[in-house]
Design a protein around this nucleic acid. Sequence first.
DNA 1: GTTCCGGGGAATGCATGCAATTTCATCCTG
DNA 2: CAGGATGAAATTGCATGCATTCCCCGGAAC
Lengths: 212, 212
Amino acid sequence: MVRAIADMIVIGQMLPGEKLDEVSLAARFEVSRTPVREALRELGAMGLVDRQPNRSAIVATVTETYLHSMFEAMAELEAICARLSAERMTVDERRTLELAHKASMKLVHTGAEEDYAAHNIEFHTRLYRGAHNDHVFEMVTQTRARLAPFRRAQFRLPGRLAKSYEEHGRIVIAIMRADGTAAAQAAYSHVELVSDASAVFAATREPSARGT
Amino acid sequence: MVRAIADMIVIGQMLPGEKLDEVSLAARFEVSRTPVREALRELGAMGLVDRQPNRSAIVATVTETYLHSMFEAMAELEAICARLSAERMTVDERRTLELAHKASMKLVHTGAEEDYAAHNIEFHTRLYRGAHNDHVFEMVTQTRARLAPFRRAQFRLPGRLAKSYEEHGRIVIAIMRADGTAAAQAAYSHVELVSDASAVFAATREPSARGT
DNA sequence: GTTCCGGGGAATGCATGCAATTTCATCCTG
DNA sequence: CAGGATGAAATTGCATGCATTCCCCGGAAC
């Protein structure tokens, strides 16, 4: 169930700042309020929703500063994954990555934004797995989920597909060469560009007071 | 309350694998089971406790592989913080860091393990803050908390205090020079050594099935 | 002696009910 | 007409109760 709510947020069915009413959610999932409350608490710990005492949980809202820090962190994490992938991927993993990348070329040509977005997620997930570090995988996955509500429609911008494909290519080449440094650099700048390309709408109000 | 339970785990009052009974905790905090359940859920999301359906929550237990991945991730994160600190710390932050470091020298001489451990935490926290990236700060703080139950008594080993002090010194020097690369390297190897020095006891069973 | 089976106790999962706080609308006042 | 106060509805926080599941221990069979 937390998965279901999380997806609703990540997919964008719920926009940052929107209220998550306990009774509505309880009705929607046909359960009592108790499990809903627990799910919201969990989502709060994951950073996907903001909670304040005696106030409705809302889809996490984030200051521009914090959003920037997440993008920067994402770039660092992707760089780590790329570097470790370059050093550690098995031959099978490398081959699969390269094949998937090459196969995505025709999605670029046909301009299939939806399909390319799916491929993109898979591509990056491969990178995260290739690092062979479960904790890094968790962190990067969770960061991506928290970033998702803010990078909607990144492939709508003209030419972005081709650019993304080219950048992926650079990462793949570095990984095939087992060149960790180059892979890290390529991955870092890739995310940086995504961050620029994103329709970044930061919360004007309600600076989600995070900080463990 | 989640803070209280989390502290009990991090401080080491509860050992990995130990059961967290809902009714006992409810009695201990003089509340009903409901808030306890929610707290446990939150701790589960934070990775400090493992939960399985219809089974007691237990203090997070971790496979040796996963523990290793956390130490490696910690090294990477500390390296990032050190590099960013070298690039971004204000003059005030740099000065305070250096002063605190130098002041810790006498703790090394007197062999005050407890006090040095406190200083150590503060020193690293300064590094995390100096990176001026809130999300990285969150990640590194949470990782440290999850690692804490497994690195108990790292300063008991003879000579570890002096070694730690020396390594801190290398980091400080690099930061004062604004040499991000050197700071990152120093921080990385520092954590690596801590990982070796730690009394690493991995869970034999119950491979905490994490993975977002 | 070991292994399999079953029952009692205990603990979790969830629903419901009540108190406390918030929120919104209406009304009053300047 | 604008702004603030007041009261009621709605919503959250927590306690309690019951159904379900699991765990543990004793006993019997091999």
